[in-house]
């Protein structure tokens, strides 16, 4: 395989895995604090449309990305209000957030369908991006790619080594004990949920600013749900999210490249591939692991202090 072709394929796999990494790493932090937010898809869509509109008017990818993050934050605070403020069932609240986000993003973006802008510029690191095989693919990406990897590294460090990360995990595993020790369960969980929302918003903004780059209703096409599956697949460990995302990115690219590779299957079957791969991955993972041992113990359970 030639270096150029290899790098081109690798670059597309990386590009399709970035939105999954971004959304999943945010959800991972939320879930480690005990918050199962099924609203990722809705937050992504809002990030996507707000990111696009922000960038469209400011002609700045950075401003667009910030708009996406802000939209994700706004959606996540809604979820936080419901689940932490009102102790609402997390699954139901997350679904409501997704339904709301699908509708609202369509409303906001109605006048921007079909408009185009240039994709985010690729940042070529001097010398490194000229390396054969790995140069362009590792060191010639857009800013989102580096941001995603930096986020994963930051989250991995935060959860493992920082005091706040330890508190967050305590809240997710045993909120009653954390509360008794004087930690703010609600406050910690709210922060984690907001971080998840910001990441999902950024992930959506990546779709409309770098990946496609235009807005169309529902363009996240279930990536928010795949990101949720990815967190389970990664056993709530940050770096495994990257591994899983590359796998799913590969499945997506296989679907797009199948024609070129001479695979004669109905296009719908190939489109179903990422979803089927997700299910198979969950099955394989559960086959070889002690069941549920890595799941945050209080995941999805509301906490209301007695006193």
């Amino acid at each position: 395989m030639s270096s150029v072709f290899f790098q081109a394929v690798a670059a597309t796999i990386i590009a399709s895995s970035i939105p999954l990494i971004l959304a999943a790493i945010g959800e991972l932090v939320a879930e480690r604090s005990g918050m199962l937010n099924l609203g990722v898809e809705g937050m992504m869509l809002m990030g996507a449309v707000c990111g696009f509109i922000g960038a469209y008017f400011s002609s700045s990818t950075l401003v667009g990305a910030l708009c996406g993050v802000a939209a994700g934050l706004a959606m996540a605070s809604l979820y936080g209000l419901l689940t932490i403020g009102f102790a609402v069932n997390q699954v139901a609240a997350g679904l409501a957030l997704t339904i709301f986000g699908q509708g609202l993003s369509g409303l906001i973006g109605a006048h921007y369908v079909g408009l185009k802008r240039d994709g985010a510029p690729h940042l070529h690191l001097p010398w490194l991006s000229g390396l054969p095989y790995v140069g362009h693919m590792l060191f010639g990406e857009d800013g989102f790619v580096y941001a995603a990897l930096a986020l994963v590294a930051g989250v991995a460090w935060f959860l493992r080594y920082s005091r706040a990360g330890l508190n967050l995990r305590a809240v997710g595993d045993n909120p009653a004990s954390a509360h008794a020790l004087g930690m703010s369960v609600g406050g910690t969980r709210l922060m984690a949920v907001l971080f998840g929302g910001a990441c999902a918003g950024l992930s959506g903004a990546y779709l409309t600013l770098a990946y496609t780059p235009f807005w169309s209703p529902g363009l996240s096409a279930g990536r928010g749900w795949i990101a949720l599956a990815l967190v389970v697949f990664a056993s709530w460990k940050p770096w495994r999210v990257v591994l899983g995302a590359l796998l799913f990115g590969g499945a997506t690219i296989l679907q797009l490249q199948a024609q070129a590779l001479g695979i004669r299957l109905p296009s719908q079957m190939l489109s179903a591939l990422p979803y089927v791969v997700t299910i198979l991955a969950l099955i394989l993972l559960n086959l070889r692991r002690y069941r549920g041992s890595l799941t945050p113990a209080a995941l999805g359970l509301p906490f209301v202090a007695d006193t």
Binding site: L97, I99, F100, Q102, G103, L104, S105, L107
Partner: peptide, 11 residues
């Protein structure tokens, strides 16, 4: 989409 958004708000 207004209907969808409204249904989300209802929930």
């Amino acid at each position: 989409d207004l209907t969808t958004a409204f249904q989300g708000v209802v929930l």
